[in-house]
Design a protein around this nucleic acid. Structure first.
Lengths: 300, 300
DNA sequence: AAAATTCAATGAAATTTAGTCATAGGTAGC
DNA sequence: GCTACCTATGACTAAATTTCATTGAATTTT
């Protein structure tokens, strides 16, 4: 069986033109090389060199093997180089899971500087999970989970990244837009638009409507944030979203952000990761950039 | 540095799902494999597997290396297979040199059965030599030389392949076509068409005209046999070629073959090869087929 | 033409490397 | 909690690679 060293020998003898020179270039004695090639030819059952006196000429088979050496060896060299990059943390990938639909715009603002800073590191964003984000984190389907609802577990570390207030967004022609602050009962004759996830994961239900045993007149689900906002602007319904995002939309569309309850619904976005990976450089770089971006938003 | 064995280990652990199974599949003990991978991870300075209890999961770097293993190892397997073919004489190439222009048609009839019989062996035909066919043979530019003029040398073996008579081909409207046999003087008012080689290599000069101190009225050279024959048919000149080839053309064109001198010019085509390669299977196969084809022609 | 130099091959010895054995510590399943 | 199975580890061993010392042959130099 041909080994890598055999390919190296073929290439080096060809490059150097003599056994002695090839040997020293391979950090071997001439004797070792002589033994090696003899064994190789014996094992493969075929002459690779024609030796006339001290002249060395490749046989056909030898020439073939040389070609292969020049083809295969660079592949090993690239593997070595890439592995060195992995070891030096210059290469890798970060699989980010998102359980926070409206955070997508913000995530984009984190990904950009991250990619610029770590040229060898790829980012993959997943938004659909068969058994939820936590399971995906456990199963190594993702490395980082962005969620407003951390679940405390022994193995998983959660860090708050930025605080936000959940507000209700209504169209300017909606009668509610006259108010500055809402009570649960205000929604009973409204159409509520949300992402298509279980109500258990919608804070507008969990923290606002259900405690007061109120329900909206109608609950419709939509995939795309932009479309939801268009609907709200047309007064076809109302929706809940982080205040910072609502304010962004309010600049472009005739919508208004209203506080939910007396003191508002205040939450945090968290990032979670497997505890034993807390020293993963890429992970921490990402979190640092995420916090940085978050502070820009909350400040603005 | 990554070695082939490391790639094999990556692939086998992935295939088998456990160290123990991979070890036995590699004909190693579990211990040996454990030692190996530990050393590999230590040397490359990077974890390739995450081991949680008895579960094994690849790290990113490990996954990368696995991909490379699945890409590179098959290349080794192909090299091994090809080398085995070389060793079993099922593969190789034969570089044939030709110093006999009209033999080309005949060569094609030899090449065809050869390629069919030896699927792994390529044939390369060379017709132009910087320093002549013998030098090419010496320099390993060709393995076999087909020539009507063997030069006896210590290192080179020549074998006659088939006898032929050199005849003059004239157009049917040529006045010579009335004769059955020619004397040198008959050509003094003719245009002689030959291949563009030195007259020293043209038997019509060496063996017929020059001994009688005769010369044709005009000597024109042409590259292509077919064109020469067209010219002869149009009575624009005469040419010399082996009788068997002349007869083939006589069936398609209005030309006639005439004997040169009393008993004709009788020659042989020879094949020459380096003496120490007399046991080269492909060479001997080729020569056998060549003789076979020759006997078909001389019989017909 | 002789001498000196360079190169490759070889056998024996030495060294390094890889592999085995025996064993211990865990985890998963019953 | 028991059993079966898997991995890790240290000491030992076998095998392989490499070196050393030497020889013979081919080139080059003198």
């Amino acid at each position: 069986m041909i080994e890598k060293i055999h390919l190296s020998i073929m290439r080096e003898i060809n490059r150097q033109g003599s056994l002695t020179a090839a040997a020293s270039s391979l950090n071997l004695t001439q004797s070792a090389l002589s033994h090696s090639i003899k064994k190789l030819e014996l094992q493969s059952g075929i002459a690779l060199w024609l030796k006339d006196g001290r002249q060395i000429r490749l046989t056909e088979a030898g020439n073939y093997l040389l070609e292969q050496a020049n083809r295969v060896l660079p592949q090993f060299e690239r593997i070595d180089e890439t592995l060195r990059q992995f070891a030096g943390n210059e290469r890798g990938s970060l699989r980010v899971g998102m359980e926070c639909h409206p955070c997508y715009q913000w995530l984009l603002k984190v990904v950009q500087p991250f990619l610029a800073q770590s040229p060898g590191v790829d980012i993959d964003v997943k938004q659909r999970f068969q058994f939820g984000g936590m399971a995906a984190l456990f199963n190594y389907d993702i490395d980082l989970l962005i969620t407003p609802d951390p679940i405390l577990k022994e193995q998983i570390m959660f860090e708050p990244v930025f605080p936000y207030e959940l507000v209700l967004v209504v169209g300017q022609s909606n009668k509610l837009s006259a108010l500055t602050q809402l009570e649960p009962a205000d929604l009973t004759d409204q159409t509520l638009l949300t992402y298509p996830v279980e109500t258990a994961r919608l804070d507008i239900f969990q923290q606002f409507l259900l405690p007061a045993q109120c329900m909206p007149r109608l609950h419709k689900t939509l995939e795309a944030t932009d479309i939801i906002l268009q609907m709200v602007a047309a007064n076809r319904g109302v929706t809940a979203m982080p205040k910072w995002l609502a304010l962004e939309y309010a600049q472009k569309l005739p919508v208004k952000a209203l506080r939910l309850g007396n003191s508002g619904i205040n939450k945090h976005i968290y990032v979670g990761y497997r505890k034993h990976e807390q020293h993963n450089t890429h992970l921490q770089t990402f979190i640092r950039l995420a916090k940085q971006q978050a502070s820009l938003i909350t400040a603005g």
